[in-house]
Design a protein around this nucleic acid. Structure first.
Length: 949
RNA sequence: GGACGCUUAGCUCAGUUGGGAGAGCAUCGCCCUUACAAGGCGAGGGUCACUGGUUCAAGUCCAGUAGCGUCCA
């Protein structure tokens, strides 16, 4: 073995072997355990969030697989409708190719499939580098035939059950992408804007109470006035009661619109008069419905003023009796240009009362970044009320549990006022809606055109045209847990693996995905008794990985760190190129470059997959965002190296030697018994942490045991045995070395798959295990009978002894190389026993020449002193230790002890404490007091003796 | 405005039912000792955001304040 762990030498070959040999497939026996991967975007690439969540999923899967479960981690990717379509459109533009509209739908979709074929392997290759034990043979894609069938099936059945409907509604419209988007894809931002106070002249000579011949309405969006169909006041507002029912003349367009009364209007806000534009504002839309107002759409799909307003009745049907003309000079203006022009015209007509600054919430499309327009269009909706009720109950009654639990509140609050789900998107890339229209616009829903014709008895003379729209990407991912297992067929896989066990995901998609998955699954999947099945029993919600300053990682900020760069390393220049390569704004690129040069002056070193995974696990405290810290990664890379070198030591001392696997006498040392016990304690707590999803504590346990127990103490304690022990002692120690290491590797494997496998393949045969992989070995089980309490206590005694000597060495700057002779005093029978039996350990670890026992009445030379209980260890000062230095050391110890004693004594003097505290607590305090007092006396005595010299 | 979360060592974070404040990194000192200098040994470092309350006892429970963050309106 190399003296340094070099991950790049081993990782890819091991992974390839695992995959080729089919180790990732379910064993076919044992209780089922299943995790469905949140399908990453097929054309995307791996980011830290993926690495984080996948590490957790893989660790869980490997743990359960080793623990005898029929474990499946289902692989699949998502077609990511808008995102992918945008990428391809940009690519076409960059290459100077015809755009999507020039190409036409079919050719464009071909291009997208081409792009998917080209780039679809990127993320799956990257995921392999993480060591993910996904079953690749079952890989699915949301647009493959099976899943597309499931989508159609679900759509048709929901339609038949009247849970899907089509209607003209106000939706969030993205004028750039020219599609509807859901509430969840809208980001509301506070913007400094204005509020315009506009005068609307009253018709027929009516006047207000204070004698004005106009009303003043306040609006943040003056351009929508072209579509106003009423002015509303509060019915209780005495200022305007007399005017309700009268009309105003809408300026610029000279349309008569009524003054209506509606509770929605806030009397306190502005003038108490509100213009109502049902086709361009969600609140107004509701007002319009309540008051049966016509709706006038004045914008085109690209948010330009149309030539003629489109008018609809409140129920969405076309209204031909009402006309909404638009002044010629405004036609075709962009919405922002229209705003400017309209305000100018109001001002010119002396109808602009005033303009006030105003901060308003403006909706932006989270993909396009443009202002979203409430827009009246025909869309498909899922009626979710009943499904939401069932889905809420599943969490309420504990069939589904969130970890951490507080996310259940988030889930409940959303479910309580859930809106019908707009599932149609005006895109080309996605599942085309299985609905056909005849020439009269009559809609027919079916799995395909043939089915529609048959079902509705439409012969070939009836021309049918399929709906142009596709379904929201989340529609297909909502079916993920069961569509991937072969639904609508009642497959063996579905019976075996559904409901799945854990969903690991970010809180940001609880609404988008988790909630919808629960709704859809419970509606379609029932057990033998007809009870709705949940998609998964546990939702483990992870936090976000942020950069070292707590900022979200994003391309535009240029602070993204690619997980693979942490694994393989990257030069500074390459990193800068990667971060600024496709930047449109040179200014931004310069800033990012500067920052990157500062943060990664030498680029990023290679750390290996195991170190990355271990870091992610160690940082995974429940539900909290993680500020990424390269230093942590470095620390855990060092940890891998530590394990590697410890293993080297074990192998150097066991390979080709008798490790007791074929019989032979075994004489276990105290250290052997101790480490075997500590190992069991570690096994127990690691299992516990796995079951509680506490990967941070689990990682800490592994780290602590490996470094602070196994390496720092046990390996050192084996040296004297291996150097000079008897054959039976050496055999027992070799056996312990390989047994502990072999077990430890299995314990680590779920988190650190590569290094554990690499070492295990060498160590296992020495421990009597011959197999081709650690992956399919049993996960260590807790064996209480291997814990030898007295061995643990005795080793603690030895540690105290050794630490006492080391402390003096350290404080006195005595070289660790210089052997010392020490004297011991006040030696009890049990002290004497331990001393006799562990002489070689003490000599070796404390680097001692000699340990002499001093009779109780014998006075030793002037010495620096350490204690193990009552027993004193004397290190003669002569020639080694400066008097003042020793006095200073003692003073420090005395101060510390006095502080401790004071605290404890204070407690014990408090009658209330003595009377109220539980007996065990009280006794503990008393013991402590005695202990501190004793120690203090000794230290003080020692101090006096030395100062008298 | 409502809900939730966070505030612990210089930095990143643990702290499980209330009972002597922890880890990693960083810092300081001594060591290239045949597993490991990506290391060994030793040491220093905290008004647990603030205020009040409950309790014999509060980082931990309760109330409030401040700052930060997220979601919703």
């Amino acid at each position: 073995m190399d003296t340094k762990f070099n991950p790049s030498n081993i990782e890819q070959a091991l992974y390839q072997a695992w995959e080729e040999k089919g180790y990732f497939k379910p064993a076919g026996q044992g209780d089922a355990y299943c995790i469905m991967i949140p399908p990453p975007n097929v054309t995307g690439s791996l980011h830290m969030g993926h690495a984080f969540q996948q590490t957790i999923m893989d660790a869980l899967t490997r743990y359960k697989r080793m623990d005898g479960h029929n474990a499946l981690w289902q692989m699949g990717t998502d077609h990511a409708g808008i995102a992918t379509q945008m990428v391809v459109e940009r690519k076409l533009a960059a290459e100077g190719q015809p755009d999507r509209h020039q190409l036409g739908r079919e050719k464009f979709i071909d291009k997208v499939w081409q792009w998917k074929e080209e780039s679809g392997g990127t993320i799956t290759r990257q995921m392999r580098r993480l060591g993910n034990s996904l079953d690749w043979t079952r890989e699915r894609f949301t647009m493959d035939d099976g899943l597309s069938n499931a989508v159609k099936e679900v759509f048709v059945r929901l339609y038949q059950d009247d849970l899907i409907y089509r209607g003209k509604r106000l939706v969030n419209w993205d004028p750039k992408l020219q599609t509807a988007i859901s509430d969840l894809e809208v980001e509301n931002k506070e913007k400094q804007g204005s509020i315009w106070h506009l005068r609307y002249p009253l018709a027929d000579g009516a006047v207000t109470k204070d004698g004005k011949n106009y009303l003043v309405v306040a609006t943040t969006r003056p351009e929508t006035m072209l579509g106003d169909t009423a002015v509303a006041v509060n019915p209780a507002d005495e200022r305007y009661q007399a005017l309700v029912g009268k009309e105003i003349i809408l300026p610029l367009v000279n349309r008569r619109i009524p003054i209506i009364a509606d509770d929605y209007v806030d009397q306190e806000f502005g003038t108490g008069c509100v213009k109502i534009t049902p086709a361009h504002d969600f609140n107004d839309y509701d007002v319009g419905k309540r008051n049966n107002l016509p709706m006038v759409n004045v914008l085109s799909p690209t948010a330009e003023v149309v030539a003629q307003g489109e008018v609809y009745y409140a129920d969405g049907t076309a209204n031909n009796e009402f006309s909404a003309d638009i002044p010629a000079d405004l036609q075709g203006l962009d919405r922002f240009a229209a705003r400017k022009a309209i305000v100018e015209q109001f001002e010119a007509a002396e109808l602009l009362e005033k303009i006030e600054p105003h901060t308003n919430k403006t909706p932006y499309g989270d993909r396009s970044g443009v202002v979203i327009e409430p827009y009246l269009t025909d869309q498909w909706y899922v009626r979710v009320e009943q499904m939401a009720k069932t889905a809420t109950e599943a969490v309420e009654n504990g069939d589904i549990q969130f970890v951490p639990k507080q996310y259940e509140n988030m889930y409940f609050s959303w479910m309580r006022d859930i809106q019908d789900w707009c599932i149609s998107r005006q895109l080309w890339w996605g599942h085309r809606i299985p609905a056909w229209y005849d020439e009269q616009g009559q809609v027919y829903v079916g799995r395909d055109e043939a089915e529609v014709r048959k079902q509705y008895q439409l012969d070939d003379t009836v021309a049918l045209k399929q709906d142009d729209d596709v379904l929201d990407t989340w529609f297909s991912s909502a079916l993920w847990t069961f569509s991937t297992l072969g639904w609508p067929d009642n497959t063996e896989d579905l019976k075996t693996f559904h409901p799945t066990d854990v969903l690991v995901t970010g809180f940001d998609i609880i609404f988008f995905w988790v909630a919808r998955m629960i709704m859809m699954t419970m509606h379609f999947i029932k057990d033998e008794n007809g009870k709705p099945q949940v998609p998964f029993k546990t939702v483990y919600v992870t936090g976000l990985i942020r950069d070292d300053e707590g900022n979200k990682m994003s391309k535009s900020k240029g602070n993204v760190i690619d997980p693979l760069d942490m694994i393989d390393g990257i030069s500074l220049d390459d990193l800068i190129e990667k971060r600024t390569g496709n930047m449109m704004q040179p200014k931004l690129a310069a800033k990012i470059e500067k920052r990157t040069r500062k943060e990664f002056a030498d680029g990023i070193e290679a750390h290996g997959t195991d170190a990355l995974r271990f870091t992610l696990a160690a940082l995974a405290s429940t539900g909290r965002d993680i500020n990424w810290d390269m230093k942590r990664l470095e620390g855990y890379r060092n940890f891998c190296n530590k394990l590697w070198n410890a293993s080297r030591y074990v192998l150097m001392n066991t390979e080709g030697q008798d490790c007791g696997q074929d019989g032979g006498e075994l004489d276990y040392s105290l250290a052997d018994k101790w480490i075997l016990g500590r190992l069991q304690q570690t096994v127990q707590s690691v299992r516990g942490h796995f079951d509680q999803y506490r990967f941070d504590l689990l990682a800490q346990n592994l780290y602590e045991f490996t470094w602070n127990q196994f390496c720092d103490w046990y390996l050192e304690l084996t040296k004297p045995v291996l150097n000079s022990g008897s054959e039976a002692q050496q055999r027992a120690t070799r056996k312990t070395l390989v047994t502990v290491l072999e077990t430890l590797l299995r314990l680590m494997h779920p988190v650190m798959p590569f290094i554990s496998e690499e070492i295990w393949l060498k160590v296992a045969p020495l421990a009597g295990v011959n197999a081709s992989t650690i992956m399919l070995q049993p996960f260590p089980s807790f064996q209480a009978d291997k814990i030898d309490e007295s061995a643990i206590a005795d080793v603690e005694w030895l540690k105290t002894f050794i630490l006492g000597v080391r402390n003096i060495r350290g404080e006195m700057n005595i070289s660790p190389n210089k052997p010392l002779s020490v004297l011991v005093k006040n030696v009890s029978t049990s002290d004497q026993n331990i001393l006799d039996q562990n002489d070689s350990f003490l000599r070796s670890l404390a680097k001692l020449d000699d340990i002499k026992v001093l009779a109780d009445d014998q006075k030793g030379p002037a010495s620096a002193t350490a204690y193990v209980g009552d027993m004193a260890i004397l290190i003669p000062m002569a020639g080694l230790i400066d008097k003042d230095a020793e006095l200073a050391r003692l003073k420090k110890a005395i101060d510390k002890n006095e502080k401790d004693l004071q605290r404890v004594a204070g407690k014990l003097k408090n009658e209330k404490f003595v009377n109220n505290a539980p007996a065990a607590v009280l006794q503990k305090e008393k013991d402590k007091q005695a202990e501190f007092e004793q120690a203090l006396n000794k230290l003080k005595q020692q101090y006096d003796e030395i100062s008298a010299l």
